[in-house]
Design a protein around this nucleic acid. Sequence first.
DNA 1: GATGAATGAGCCTTCATTCAT
DNA 2: CATGAATGAAGGCTCATTCAT
Lengths: 203, 203, 203, 203
Amino acid sequence: MAPKIVDKEAKKIEILHAAIRVFSEKGAAKTKMIDIAIAAKIGKGTIYEYFRSKEEVFAGTFTLFYQGMESMLLECVHSTDDPEEQLCNLVNVSLVEMLEHGGEFINIMMDFWAESVRTKNEEIRSIINLKKIYDEFRALVVGILDAGIAKGVFRPIDSHVMASFFIGALDGLMLQEIMDPGIIDMKKAAGTICDCFINGIKK
Amino acid sequence: MAPKIVDKEAKKIEILHAAIRVFSEKGAAKTKMIDIAIAAKIGKGTIYEYFRSKEEVFAGTFTLFYQGMESMLLECVHSTDDPEEQLCNLVNVSLVEMLEHGGEFINIMMDFWAESVRTKNEEIRSIINLKKIYDEFRALVVGILDAGIAKGVFRPIDSHVMASFFIGALDGLMLQEIMDPGIIDMKKAAGTICDCFINGIKK
Amino acid sequence: MAPKIVDKEAKKIEILHAAIRVFSEKGAAKTKMIDIAIAAKIGKGTIYEYFRSKEEVFAGTFTLFYQGMESMLLECVHSTDDPEEQLCNLVNVSLVEMLEHGGEFINIMMDFWAESVRTKNEEIRSIINLKKIYDEFRALVVGILDAGIAKGVFRPIDSHVMASFFIGALDGLMLQEIMDPGIIDMKKAAGTICDCFINGIKK
Amino acid sequence: MAPKIVDKEAKKIEILHAAIRVFSEKGAAKTKMIDIAIAAKIGKGTIYEYFRSKEEVFAGTFTLFYQGMESMLLECVHSTDDPEEQLCNLVNVSLVEMLEHGGEFINIMMDFWAESVRTKNEEIRSIINLKKIYDEFRALVVGILDAGIAKGVFRPIDSHVMASFFIGALDGLMLQEIMDPGIIDMKKAAGTICDCFINGIKK
DNA sequence: GATGAATGAGCCTTCATTCAT
DNA sequence: CATGAATGAAGGCTCATTCAT
């Protein structure tokens, strides 16, 4: 029984990874179930053994994405106590690592954004809840900034606005990278931005 | 003859505005031609008197958007010679004005991003050419930064990376505003960001 | 008043000739009202000043066709009393003259055939009544053949079957000419066929 | 695997037969996909599992028709060496057998003629290539006639014109039968025509 | 009268989902 | 369990017809 469940779960993840590949390439709206099936090397009907609908597959990819992102971010923050270093870690992880290890997620993110804003399906809305996730992300950064301010490392800036700005910059850079892959030297950008951002708020 | 042309063109624009409203609300993929027709208070078939296909309507909304944006940005830059002021103008226009006067465009922008990256239709690709538009936008900001560096107002930072960062931050902030309207006090944010950004690169 | 009516009638005929051109080229089913309007160099709506529907235009072209054909055939027969000559005249008129002066009719005839067999519209059926027309045509030929038999010029063949054969051959040759224009040297064919046909039934 | 292929192919043929029934009754242009689906007792979408478009279904019916006709004609010719008998066989097969066993084909033939002449779709044109088929048919008859002339059975007539005449007569007779079913006693007609035709060219 | 902009019924086609094997 | 053949709801688009000018 137990191994069965594990297998079921493993296959589900497999399908989700296939789905991510296709969503990322074609966009969720233009992806057909058969595309996912082919990418997962299974039959079209099999998907429905693991998911009730296309929307549920989409929601599944989001959950997978979110789990990965969350652990990445927390790791960044927990690896040090220095606010400056924490921010730099976030920049590096977001820009460099994400592009390298999860290029597909970046592309699919556009669909998450769009779906998150517009879906009327309450179940989906509760899963692809980017409002909440951005809130959490902002809270994380606000925490770092406030700690820095408290330590006297940063100027007493408005940490909420600043966090939004910080997160926005990361998203916006990724967006440009998506629109025109290679246009931005991400390693260089990460360095410059850390530098500039810290500079802008340092006491 | 002349009034006829004006009327035809005016109706086209009217339809595009209706389309923008619907695209922005439902997303382009989930928008049906009948939705646009109803929003424009015309018959379904009438749209095809002005556009050859749904895709062409979508491309039309983009062109409308782009024209508005372009003139806005150029206005910002031409109104002064001071690099600092120019950057602040861009921030203000992007965040404050755009949200106020073009809330719909912000929403529809997600569809432009997605379509721009993924469409295989060459004609559409040549119209919704965000790669080119971002290039131009970056060039504009690079010009400002380089002027500031030349004047000795800014540190000798990598202006291309900096421009990407700057533009990214604006996009990213709008994105957060879309995800969660009202979460960011845009007027305040604009001020803080001008301040912080200039601070970060000022000599 | 009188000239008005003449004008109306003249314009109707003009439109019908335009319609014939287009029907003949594209086929009735694939012809659009706008095609006819353009061919007639009038506005789309104007057609409806003269005809109630596309079907009525189609029926009109048929009537025009039928009138022309009928007078042609009768002329053939009335120009001589000799049965052999009458048959040869029919052959010549059908193959040579028709192709030369009414190539368009030949093409459109396929649509008359098809519509005649299949229309369920009783009004149309009563106009495009090829059953009746072929009956008349057969009766005409049967008359010639019977006259020839009575005169002792022809063998006592079954004149009804023979007439069908005769008419069939003319239609069938035109059909081949339509499928592959130029494949048949019609002048030569007319001669050979007169010769052969007469030979086959001559005493 | 093998049985699967057979089944798929069998169902395709089944659909084609249903399509032929409907095309033949309503005409290809006025036939809707749903009509074919109902005639085949399947769902509308199922047709698209076997054919890519309505046009392809139409082309399929033609191929079915052509295969049947070709084997029929060749059989006629191969069953004997006597040119006279070969011609009579052709007459009999065309008129009697075809009407009895393929009445539907006769009706649909009008659509083949029309489509063959007018389609601009190159793929369809290459399938419904009546020009080629009539060429082959004429060549077949020319061969018989030339053999008869060589044997001294037939007069030295122009065999190409004669073949066109012969084939034309068969088509033309079927056409009259379509226009007015039963008007022609085909068995009698076949006999009379064999007789007359042979008589007309016999030495 | 003549026109062409407007209309919506109707059709082809797609694709998510079902279900018999 | 896995599959893919079957399905029909749904949507983009066409075009005959209407009607205000």
